[in-house]
Design a protein around this nucleic acid. Sequence first.
RNA 1: GGGCGGUUAGCUCAGUUGGGAGAGCACCAGCUCGACAAGCUGGGGGUCACUGGUUCGAGCCCAGUACCGCCCACCA
Length: 804
Amino acid sequence: MEPLYKPEGVEERWQETWEAEGLYEAHAERGGETFVIAHPPPNVTGELHMGHALQLALADTLVRMKRMQGFNTLFQPGYDHAGISTQNAVEKDLAKEGKTRHDLGREAFEARVWEWLRLYGRTIMTQFRRIGASLDYRRERFTMDDDYVRAVMRFFVHLYRKGWIYRDNRIINWCPFHETSLSDLELVHVEVDDALSYVTYPFVDGEGGVTIATARPATIPGDVAVAVHPDDQRYRDVVGREVVVPHIERHVPVIADGEVDPEFGTGALKVTPGHDPLDFEIGRRHELPEPMVIGPDGRMNAEAGDLAGLTQEEAGERIIAWAKERGLLEKRESYRHSVALCERCESRIEPLISEQWWCSMEELKKPALEALRERRVRYHPESQHRFAVDSLENAPDWNISRQLWWGHQIPVWYCPDGHITVDETEPEACAECGSIDLRREQDVLDTWFSSNLWPFATLGWPDDTPDLRVFYPGDLNTTAREIIRLWENRMIFSGLEIMGDVPFHDVVIHTTVMAPDGRRMSKSLGTGIDPLDLIAEHGADATRYGLLKMSSSQDVRFSHGAVEEGRKLANKLWNVSRLILANAEGIEPRVAPQETEERWILARLEATRAEMEADLAAFDFAHAVQSLYRLTFDDFCDWYAEAIKPRLYEKDEDAAATALAALERLLRLLHPVMPHVTEEIWSNLPGREARLIVSQWPEPDERFAADLGALDGVQDAAAIFRRSGVLVDLEGDGQRIFSAVVKPERVQANGNEEAERERLRKEIARAEGMLANERFVANAPEDVVAGEREKLERYRRELDALGG
RNA sequence: GGGCGGUUAGCUCAGUUGGGAGAGCACCAGCUCGACAAGCUGGGGGUCACUGGUUCGAGCCCAGUACCGCCCACCA
């Protein structure tokens, strides 16, 4: 064993060994209590990023502890086909050849996607392995696998037959590049500098007109009304009159609608139902026509008259010029506002009216809300629970169709008469008229529609499988905040609807790791830190430790120090193992405590076991690793190992055997967080048959717990060691030396002890002061007062022991 | 505009029913003694963002202010 622990090579070797020996595998027939995490499937085109790494570190720590505790543990891996993201990647690839997907046609494009995925996709599981994630990789699923597609079709048909899926013409977000609708959640908003144009719409009869403000003059030909707030006195006499829309010269009414903001612009809003979500609503309320003047390609269409074919920018300029010539342009001012972009291609989103498939939330959300309110699913932290409930309560109907070519094609067939046949597989004839001339719906489903099924489709649903019976429902899901509405809530209602039970009971909303400068980590900003670089430099164990350490609050700046701390911990563990192993040749681990320090370290190990279990039960990973760090560095290495050194050198068998036993317990506690270095050390221990990964988690041990109490309940090692006489200070330089163990009567006075006495005197003075305060004694809870009395007595005893 | 979170040492962050202001890194000093110099020992360093309140006592509880961040939102 080298004095410097080098994780490279060691970690890969154990990862391969564990997997080859089948130690990651879950088997339904094994029986016993289960612990299941269906890990969020990364995009099939994805690369490991900090979010994945953190998520894996959190989940794998739990999985490994549960595995050691004897649970039948399933950690489910797999990939999401990520419709628009994958299609976008392949289209970019095609663009390099100067082609678009239309040059290939749908079938050939789909084949191209599969080929592309064969070459470049599915790489992230290798990276998952490299961080030590103990997923059952044999069970890798893909949302486009035949079985999974069958599940998606079954789900769609199920919802359709319940009457919760319908088709409707509504305003949607349209990406002109991908030529598809997008949900609100697939957009990003950015601030842009634009112009706000004040244009006057003259009255049809009489002088003057109404001036509106618009940032999108190109939509003017789609105007069907001008709207003002009903209480707006400025326009009291105008409502009901007609005005002329510039350029297209359409006569439209002035209407009153409460949604108009009187504060904005002139307080008058041009109403364009075809190209604005708010206007669409107003239009429907007032039963206005819904002309569209912008086509799916983002350019002006035939409805726009002589502007047809122009870009919106060109059309807007033409219209503004037209108004200016006629004195209808009051002013133009610069205007900064946010616009919606497609999150994949950053094209500007066009709101337009389109026929889409929708999923009603009305009935689906009811049982899910009930489950959340009854805490059958708990969000952590608790504040996210309220957000989840609010989001679900207010969830609008869900646009589930996308005009993409990569995804699950909607299982709907049309006959020439327009009848609709819905089935899991291609029907032979129209269900209504028997026509065999059927054409399948071209749209595919929103990717999240299939992601919803992840917790049970990966287990074999719609078939009734042993896996499904044993491993559903699962236990928890870990995810980022922004995924709550996209995925978590939808998994909950899908699980309840299909399986009759929630898919998991806890949702851990994890920390967002920001760049060191506080900005979001992002490829485009160049602020990202590659977890694989961290693993290469410091090892997977150190990276896991660092990420867990950072996981305390809602957002945290990435800290190299936390990862380096993990590396130091691994190295420390490695070296203290060398000390013990070098002095315990031929000795078997045995708990045979002879001295105070041995009883003390066993008690500390026991206390830390309890702390760690409590911390992890509360998903407080940062505290768990902090406990482990203190235990290893402060207690085990700095105090215990130093204290037993002399006896180890003297070949004291009890001391060596106990040290081995203590080390075993330490390794077990650390394994969930730092699996590789602990397994490596474990393999060097005498008489080890089973791997550490499947060894038994330490059982609570009353002896040690009682000892900790007997040691005065004080966890301060210095106080205990000083009293036991193990701790001696050399005169003069204040060095702490253990090499000469002396009896209590030989404990020498020194600077440290004086400092300790001083500390105790201060404590005693404080406690005395409080207890002398009548109002404190009268008003404070009894146990607090009693606690102070106990402390006072204890401090006095300690001070006496130090000869103060 | 709404929601959530943050402000504690030079940096990243702990601080669990209100009673000692802490860790790691960085810095300074001293140590190669048979685990570890990626180490050990010791040390310096903070007006706990600000204002007010409650309390015998506030980093912690309450009200407000300022700044930072994230998420969400149909301001044309």
